[in-house]
Structures are given as structure tokens and as C-alpha cells.
């Protein structure tokens, strides 16, 4: 199994690993350089780096955009690293991993959406990877792009476009008819149609944001608690907690385990799952099959 690799192969490997790690490191450096030093703990949105004047509305380039691009760059590195040195016979651990990812998403898409949506598996994989890694950015202290409503709003909007596209597959009349399924509930149907992307966006955004809000509150509380507990100690020991709140070491990690790792990955999974269910549910498979049959018959007649 152990085949000696050439020096160039190892060099490319090292470059790819650098490509994975360097964006994250750059993000940390940018964060350190641009964050103004403050004592107070505040809950705020993404930091604005610069504003591009655009029609309709100015476009601020914020932390969330930059971090998204860094994540995308890093994921490109991951993809290239996993598929580097792929061969049908010689199997490495990373190849097993790549195959596992591909086959798992293929199976998931196949079982949730059916064989017609086979081409969706890279999209689902992309949503999961981008969402999960964006949320996991909090682990290295960066601002998670998923706690910006605009980011998840954009994803939800794309999912909404997909849903509408598949509803339009049988023509605009069928699309309009689907709203008046029970005619009395037409307004409710329209509202629920609009509510789908909004609820998806707010769900993801709210989960990640609530995690960071609770983390911030806990950090503030632990800072205050360490001052009240150890502030009365004599001499320099009493001043230490104000500079270095000792209780903040370790304890927030337990919450971080749930809010950053578990919740981030779970929300990524749920966003992908809901995408699959909504898109597959929007596609009127039986009507579409009937329509295709009709077209086929017409073609036969003309021939």
C-alpha cells in the first residue's frame, strides 16, 4: 500500500495545505489589525471595511463578505487537496474521505429528492460545506458570516429561485394554479411561499447569532464574576482580574462546544435538508411526466 511519492507530489501537497491554512491565517491577521481596541463587550454586526458606491444602495464590503471569500478559498484548497493524486487503484486516506463525501451526499440526495435531482448533490454539498465552515470560523475567533442576515438571506434567496424554477417546469398556468389549491386559502399559500426563504434565512441566522449573543453575555458575566470574586485579594492579585478575567478561561468552551460546533454543523445540515425537501417538493413530478408524455406523443404524430 505504501507507494513512495515523488518530491513534486509532496511539494504540491504542501502548497495545497498552505492554500487551506493561509486564508484562515489572513483572516485572523485582518481581524487583529482592523478591530479597534475596546474594553467593553458589545454585540454588533459585521465590521465594515470600505463602502463601494453603487446604484440603488451603497455596497459595504464587510467582514462577512471577506470571511466568506476566505472560506471559499480554503474550501477550494480542500477540494484540490482531497482530489490530488486520485487513482482508481492506489487508495489513500484522503481519497477514501473524498469518496465518502461524494457518495454520502449522492445517497442523501437520491433518497431525499429522487433520481431526477441527481445533479443537485454538488449543490447540497456546497451549501453544507460553506454553511458549516462559515459557522465554524468562530472557533478561530473570526466573525461567522452566517450570523449576518444578508449572507444567509442570499442563500435562501437562491433556494427560493430554485423552488420557483422547479414550480415553473409545467408552465406558468400550472404555477399560478398551484397557489389556488384550495381556492379559499390562496392568500395563505402566497404568504407561505414568501415565508419559506425568510424562515430559512432567519432560522440559520438566529441560531448562529443567538449562540454568539449568549457567548458574549456569558463572557461579560464571567468577567464581572471574576472581578467580584478575586477583586478583594490583597496587592497585585486584586488588580489582576480586571486586566485578565481568570474565569473566562475554559468555561465558555463548554458552551462553545454546543453553540459553535454542534449548532453550526446542525444548522448547515438542516439548511441543506430543507433545501432538498423544498426543491423536491416544489417539482410536480406527476404533472411533469404527463406533460413530457404529451410532448412525446405530439412529436410522434408529427413524425
Amino acid at each position: 500500500m505504501s507507494k513512495r511519492r515523488s518530491a513534486s507530489f509532496i511539494l504540491v501537497d504542501v502548497l495545497l495545505i498552505l492554500m487551506i491554512l493561509l486564508p484562515l491565517f489572513c483572516g485572523m491577521v485582518i481581524k487583529i489589525l482592523t478591530t479597534p481596541p475596546t474594553d467593553e463587550i458589545s454585540i454588533a454586526g459585521a465590521q465594515i471595511y470600505f463602502i463601494v458606491p453603487m446604484p440603488l444602495q451603497d455596497m459595504p464590503i464587510t467582514e462577512s463578505q471577506v470571511n466568506s471569500w476566505l472560506v471559499i478559498l480554503s474550501l477550494l484548497g480542500v477540494c484540490l487537496y482531497l482530489t490530488h493524486g486520485l487513482s482508481p487503484t492506489y487508495e489513500t486516506r484522503r481519497q477514501h474521505f473524498a469518496e465518502m463525501i461524494v457518495e454520502a451526499t449522492d445517497n442523501m440526495v437520491n433518497s431525499n429528492m429522487g433520481a431526477y435531482f441527481k445533479a443537485f448533490s454538488p449543490f447540497i454539498c456546497a451549501i453544507m460545506a460553506l454553511s458549516a465552515f462559515s459557522s465554524l470560523l468562530t472557533l478561530i475567533g473570526l466573525y461567522p458570516p452566517t450570523s449576518d442576515l444578508n449572507v444567509v438571506g442570499g442563500w435562501a434567496l437562491l433556494v427560493f429561485f430554485l423552488i420557483t424554477y422547479y414550480k415553473f417546469k409545467c408552465g406558468p398556468i400550472h404555477y399560478l394554479k398551484s397557489f389556488a389549491e384550495p381556492p379559499a386559502l390562496t392568500p395563505l399559500n402566497v404568504i407561505s411561499e414568501i415565508a419559506t426563504p425568510i424562515s430559512m434565512a432567519f432560522r440559520h441566522y438566529g441560531n448562529v447569532l443567538s449562540g454568539s449573543v449568549i457567548s458574549v453575555l456569558l463572557a461579560a458575566a464571567l468577567g464581572g464574576l471574576s472581578v467580584t470574586l478575586f477583586g478583594n485579594l490583597p496587592g497585585i492579585l486584586g488588580k489582576l482580574p480586571q486586566v485578565f478575567p481568570i474565569l473566562r478561561v475554559g468555561i465558555p468552551a463548554i458552551l462553545s462546544l454546543y453553540f459553535d460546533i454542534f449548532s453550526g454543523c446542525l444548522q448547515a445540515f438542516i439548511f441543506a435538508m430543507l433545501t432538498m425537501l423544498y426543491v423536491a417538493g416544489a417539482f410536480p413530478a406527476e404533472d411533469y411526466a404527463r406533460k413530457m408524455e404529451k410532448i412525446k406523443n405530439k412529436n410522434k404524430k408529427t413524425n
Binding site: 455596497m59 477550494l76 449543490f123 454539498c125 456546497a126 444578508n150 434567496l157 437562491l158
Partner: peptide, 17 residues
């Protein structure tokens, strides 16, 4: 514009993957 950017980001990562 931020929404548009993130929409394009998702398309980009889809193409990459």
C-alpha cells in the same frame, strides 16, 4: 448588494465543488 454577493458566493462554491 450584500445579498447578491452572498448569492454569487454560493454559486461560486457550488461550481468549485
Amino acid at each position: 448588494w450584500n445579498i447578491v454577493i452572498s448569492l454569487c458566493n454560493l454559486l461560486l462554491i457550488f461550481l468549485i465543488v
